[in-house]
Simulated assay, not measured.
Amino acid sequence: MKHIRNMIMAAAGAAMLGGVATAQAQDLKIAVGFPPGSAAFYALDNLAKNIEANSDMKAKVFALSLLNLKETPPGIRDGIADMGFVLPPYYPAEYAETNLAANLSMLATTGEQIESPGTAMGAAMTEYVFLHCPECLTEHKRMNQVYLGTGTSPTYILHCTTPIRTMADLKNKKYRSGAANFGRWAEAVGGTKVSVPGNDIYEAMAQGVVDCGMFSATELTNLQLFDVTKYITTKIPGGVFAGVATNNINRDTWADLTPEQREVIFKASARSNADVTWKYYADAKRNLNDAPDKGIEIIEPTEEMVKFSNDFVESDLKVIAEQFTNDYGVDNAQAKIEKVAELVDKYKKLTKDMADDPEALAQLYWDEIMSKVDLTTYGLD
């Protein structure tokens, strides 16, 4: 309907101008289910500024007020927002192909170590979805969305209301899990996984619904968790959160744009993916430095705990393949896992010096991945 309405408006404008049609300017509504000041808002606010600076389009970011995190995918699908910060793990069946790759995020912190594993995983996810996974693009299409890339968190660590110092301390705890692989880790250490939407973590920790949250230190400010976190155990479970489609856009909105407008948004999205990854990393580093002054004890895990997590990642690859094959009907899951692992290794090497350089990371996104996408057809079939 939106596409038809814009065609009618364009035709009317052409008639008024003696039959010469001109491109219609666009006003884009961008939804992010995090508050102002968060890493996600920072990235999408910069996205809006880049769009406005390089086109005749207007863009406004709505932080929390338009759609929360769980409402965003259907909200973009239905045109409530034109663009938004989508978390595919909230919809495991609808985004099964994308979630298969996101479930492999713990590969980012095993093997070769880099300062910001999120830079490698975000680029690996983005290349995989754009260039190697037509099934991923199809499922975004079924949600009436066009995928525009992925940014990721820094390393996942434990934020708890009780101290976790040993393997024994890990048992019988309730862990908030934001993705299936982290939930399996919680069960592997003898705990219970609890699914809580990101916007509800504060209350869940404050009321004892969960003992620990598994997420990056960025969420201490993103979700105002400094007040409810008393202990942080670093390095475990490891991995990053890669179940992100940073700037998904409604397909009807995308189709209504001129080729020049689509290119502007595409280039701005490369920077936005880099911005969210960098901002998450920078805020996590600052928050960990600030934590002791806010009454939070920082605990280093034992070697046994780190080894357990690394061994878990290796053994979990088979579980991931079986789960996505049997539960979600993903074909050739093992081959897809191997491809993602290959890409993670590739981008560890390419991004190892980019932890604090979002401009270089954005250029990498463009040169290695997004410049290879044919915008004359992408998202229009």
Rank of each mutant, 00 (worst) to 15 (best):
Y231C: 07
E139G: 11
N172H: 10
I296S: 04
G122R: 00
A40Y: 01
Y128W: 08
T351F: 01
L137Y: 09
N289C: 00
A23S: 15
Q24N: 05
Y147I: 07
T152E: 00
I337V: 11
A321R: 11
L137S: 11
A186K: 09
D200I: 02
D331K: 13
A242P: 07
L170T: 14
M121R: 04
T150L: 00
I4E: 15
Y280D: 12
E322H: 06
F226Y: 04
T98M: 13
N222L: 03
K339I: 12
V32W: 14
E297H: 15
I298T: 00
S269I: 09
E338P: 13
W366H: 01
A93P: 11
K174E: 13
F324T: 12
S55Q: 05
D252V: 02
M1E: 05
G208H: 04
F34S: 06
T72F: 09
L220G: 00
V209D: 06
E297W: 03
E94H: 01
F85V: 13
Q113W: 00
A11I: 06
N172Y: 04
T126V: 13
L257R: 11
A333R: 03
S315V: 04
V306T: 14
N332L: 04
T258W: 07
I265D: 01
M16Q: 06
A204W: 02
A96H: 15
L66E: 07
V319H: 08
S269Y: 05
T161K: 07
K58L: 03
T351Q: 00
K193H: 07
L148F: 11
A93Y: 12
D56C: 01
A123G: 10
N54S: 03
R165H: 11
